[in-house]
């Protein structure tokens, strides 16, 4: 990681930890000046960006986070069976505006199934889901058209909401830029790398300005910088009042979320996440 990457990671960390924007800018500018004038490896001078961000938070504190708003998604008693196998039993999750919920669990425990049920793409055997407002969904893979350009994807999604072509293209490109991707090129989706294709996928799901955003492990193929940008964007959306549900198996990100729903059967693990909701008994 070079100095620029280190500074970018620090910026994202400060943002995630809700350090006031002005203070965060000041800290990053000071660190950049120090590195430019004094030289040296930022990892040696300041240590890991996460650790340095932690020290900054201890020193200057954080801005108060916005209070969670009204309930945007309420999934109650979701049960799903495939033949004789029950993959979800009585799973319950409530997410308010301005909250991020993580759905975690072992492989095959029904994380994606749960999300598809919440999106209304699959019916459960029992339970119901209530959604307030517009729904956005980003699948784990697929969900794009191989022979279309990124701009054409934006136009296609935008037309669904009655958005004209120009504004849809501009909104798509702006959302892609938040993930560090310049989307205006002349490249068909099939020629994009796996990570860039996922950026397109993610951008499409946020394009309709959803009130509830459902993300099924959307970061597959992301490099470190994009991964940081991704969580940074999630924080921005949360602060803007979006209710977000993200399926993840990366437990190191759980300190950045407000709610955790663990779908791992209780007999398979002794681990319990903080703020756990629902799941299986």
């Amino acid at each position: 990681m070079n100095a620029d990457d280190w500074l970018r990671t620090l910026t994202a960390e400060l943002h995630q930890r809700r350090v006031a924007a002005d203070a965060a800018r000041h800290v990053v500018a000071e660190a950049a000046t120090h590195l430019r004038e004094g030289g040296g490896d930022p990892w040696v001078v300041f240590g890991p960006p996460q650790q340095y961000a932690g020290a900054v938070v201890e020193s200057i504190g954080t801005a108060p986070g916005p209070r969670p708003g009204p309930v945007r998604l309420h999934a109650a008693g979701i049960t799903k069976r495939y033949g004789r196998r029950t993959v979800l039993r009585d799973a319950t999750l409530t997410v308010r505006a301005g909250q991020i919920a993580a759905v975690v669990g072992a492989n095959g425990c029904g994380k994606s199934t749960f999300l598809r049920i919440c999106a209304g793409l699959m019916s459960p055997d029992a339970g119901e889901v209530t959604v307030s407002g517009r729904l956005g969904y980003c699948p784990q893979s697929g969900g794009t058209a191989d022979f279309l350009l990124a701009d054409e994807h934006f136009v296609l999604v935008g037309a669904g909401q009655g958005v004209a072509r120009g504004p849809a293209r501009r909104a798509g490109r702006a959302a892609a830029r938040q993930l560090g991707w310049e989307a205006g090129g002349d490249v068909q989706a099939r020629h994009l790398s796996g990570g860039t294709r996922q950026k397109l996928n993610l951008t499409m799901s946020t394009l309709s300005a959803p009130d509830v955003l459902l993300l099924d492990e959307p970061y597959q193929g992301f490099d470190q910088g994009t991964y940081v940008n991704f969580w940074d964007q999630l924080s921005r959306l949360r602060d803007a009042g979006t209710a977000i549900v993200v399926v993840t198996h990366l437990l190191n990100q759980l300190d950045r979320v407000d709610i955790v729903l663990d779908l791992t059967p209780a007999h398979e693990t002794g681990w319990h996440a903080p703020g756990i909701q629902g799941g299986r008994p």
Binding site: L135, G136, G143, L207
Partner: peptide, 15 residues
């Protein structure tokens, strides 16, 4: 066949 995975999300997008 190619549109199979795209259509559900277009449905969510307002189609």
């Amino acid at each position: 066949t190619a549109a199979r995975e795209l259509e559900p999300r277009l449905r969510l997008a307002g189609y």
